[in-house]
Write a protein that binds this DNA or RNA. Structure first.
Length: 573
RNA sequence: CGGGAUGUGGCGCAGUUUGGUAGCGCGUCUCGUUCGGGACGAGAAGGGCGCAGGUUCAAAUCCUGUCAUCCCGACCA
């Protein structure tokens, strides 16, 4: 089998495609790794396919290492399975629903909890069968509202998803920790030791404890809260916001002020010549369940964390249109004497505040001197605001929180009995009683992980793949193949390297060195071997690493062993 | 689903304001000269301007509709 660059299907581009915003996307297009087929749907060329295979193999080894058994679920699932778990109607539009020729309802699998339960519920009827974990590496489809960033966020993608089943919560927790460690090994082996785990919001998966594995990167889509003083790390959606207010010594009396056309916090601040933290704003949402508005009061300088609010309300929410019903006066909603039949909530950012400016529930009027304790009586405060930079750490209480962006490359969930109960999967326990097994689930986006490696490890000229996932181990360049001696020698070295069992891409095109090296940069193979007249004169070949850290001249009769050594020692990460 | 932008040979773009029947760079093919970081010369192929209507003697340019892509937001195991 000859793997010559001249025959490699796919073209490489000199120029950056205009619609590629992030580097990994641009380099994967420029390097002939991917081609867009439709919105959020890509084909892969051979280089990416080889990378993905290696990543999958690493994942497989680590999953098998924690006693996982590889299985395969269908991509197309009957709606009835999703109705059993009550998700058919509860998951949003990202679940692609369709009908077959007999008008049967089906969905494209976006996650496989139902299929996993379906596969094992007859088998695992005795406590003696537990625990066990099954996993697959397979295509998922999620009809995302907006795909972006090349392989970072797509609609069709390959994912490793694992499902564990336990006869106790304690056993689940034990396994969860094992899986956490396995994930750390996976990310380290693919060349991303810097991936961190953060506490996360469980979202549509249900269940309790969950973690996300994040590659911190400015192009990431998630906000991650990290404490500089301790090891607290959480997704913004799950981060508790701690606000320590101190009251002014004197509470001024409530004073009605005429504020014509002043209906945003910015307007209020410039009108009163003050700052947003001295204001109380109202944010109105509508509940998905009954469409009723919910009013949340929050200090003017904080933002609503909709994920947390959603969890508190127990249903989906969306921004409300305020049409001056329910006693709500758009732009002038205030907590004092708000006469409404809506649910009213107070964020903890308002706890222990006074002398704030708030709306007066009357067009063109605000109050100053609002003292929440005095003017609204005793209210309960909820945690529904976003953490801010330099906020207080919920763990160590220092004001050392930082906010970064992160690419979520994997996650792990303690699901509990959410699915086994809904789908009536039970087993007989030691004590003779019928119980619901406890589940965990564990995902890694394979394509996204490849993109993340590229994002974290590249220069202006191309990706710098680690040996563990590189499409080839050695990139052999024959400069000046019109010289018969060069051609013969390079062919010979190629054959010897292949005979050694090395994965070699061989460039014997009759092109200028610049073209050859640029293409090699785009393919990002860790070791480059250069045969050229110049080297031949010294009876040498040149071995350089893609990251430029190694550059050697090696005698020809030693080069095969030397290359072999480098691949399996120096670069064996 | 809101807001913004863009669709012109394989890729990157100009031309649109002021309608006159499409151009540049890269790439591709042929020949020759070059040859260690995207060489040079000569020649050649390839698009009718996202799509559908309309206005006009004439539309890439104007109008209407529609589709697609990208960006911001909403949403998201």
């Amino acid at each position: 089998m000859h793997m010559k660059l001249a025959n490699l299907v796919g073209e490489r581009f000199k120029e950056r495609p205009s619609d590629c915003l992030i580097d990994s996307h641009a380099l994967m297009v420029r390097g002939g790794y991917i081609k867009n087929v439709a919105n959020g749907i890509y084909s892969s060329f051979t280089p990416l396919k080889r990378i993905v295979k290696k990543i999958e193999q690493i994942i497989r080894e680590e999953m098998d290492n924690i006693d996982g058994q590889e299985v395969s679920f269908p991509v197309v699932l009957p709606a009835s399975l999703w109705e059993e778990s009550d998700r058919y109607d509860n998951v949003g539009d990202e679940l692609l629903r369709f009908y077959d020729r007999n008008n049967g309802k089906y969905v494209l699998g976006m996650t496989h909890e139902e299929a996993a339960v379906h596969l094992v519920r007859e088998y695992a009827q005795s406590y003696l069968k537990y625990p066990f974990m099954i996993y697959q590496i397979q295509t998922k489809f999620r009809d995302e509202a907006r795909s972006r960033g090349g392989l970072i966020r797509v609609r069709e993608f390959t994912m490793k998803d694992a499902y564990s089943f336990h006869s106790s919560q304690a056993d689940l927790e034990d396994y969860y920790n094992k899986c956490h460690k396995a994930y750390e090994r996976i990310f380290e082996r693919v060349g991303l030791p810097q991936v961190v785990s953060v506490a996360s919001d469980s979202g549509m998966m249900g269940g309790n404890l969950s973690h996300e594995f994040m590659l911190l990167s400015p192009v990431g889509e998630d906000s991650v809260v990290i404490c500089k003083s301790c090891n607290y790390r959480a997704n913004m959606d799950a981060a508790e916001n701690i606000v320590n207010n101190t009251k002014d010594e004197m509470s001024n009396p409530l004073t009605l002020v005429h504020t014509p056309n002043i209906n945003t916090i910015d307007d209020v601040c410039s009108f009163f010549n003050t700052t947003p933290d001295k204001t109380c704003k109202a944010v109105v949402y509508q509940k998905e369940s009954d469409n009723k508005p919910v009013v949340l009061f929050i200090r003017g300088d904080y933002e609503v964390n909709e994920a947390k609010l959603k969890n508190i309300l127990g249903c989906d929410i969306y921004p409300a249109e305020i049409n001056n019903e329910h006693g709500l006066v758009a732009g002038f909603i205030g907590a004092y004497k708000l006469n409404t039949d809506c649910e009213v909530l107070f964020d903890r950012s308002l706890e222990n505040t006074n002398n704030l400016i708030c709306g007066a529930n009357k067009v063109d009027y605000h109050y100053t001197g609002f003292d929440i304790g005095r003017d609204t009586g005793n209210v309960d405060y909820i945690d529904a605001s976003k953490v801010t930079a330099n906020g207080t750490c919920p763990n160590c209480k220092n004001n050392t929180l930082e906010i970064s962006r992160g690419i979520e490359v994997g996650n792990i969930f303690q699901l509990g009995t959410r699915y086994t109960e809904a789908m009536n999967m039970t087993y007989l326990d030691e004590d003779g009683k019928r119980k619901y097994p406890v589940m965990g689930c564990y995902g890694i986006g394979v394509g996204r992980l490849a993109a993340a490696v590229c994002e974290a490890r590249h220069d202006d000229y191309g990706p710098i793949w680690p040996m563990s996932v590189a499409p080839w181990q050695v990139h052999l360049c024959a400069v000046r193949v019109d010289d018969h001696k060069i051609k013969e020698l390079a062919d010979n070295i190629y054959n010897q390297l292949v005979k050694k069992g090395l994965e070699v891409i061989y460039d014997d095109r009759s092109v200028s060195a610049g073209v050859m090296f640029s293409d090699a940069d785009l393919l990002g193979v860790p070791l480059r071997v250069i045969i050229s007249p110049r080297n031949l004169k010294e009876n040498c070949c040149e071995i350089v690493s893609r990251d430029k850290k190694i550059s050697l001249k090696v005698k020809l009769d030693e080069c095969i062993d030397q290359i072999n050594d480098l691949v399996f020692t120096e670069f064996a990460e």
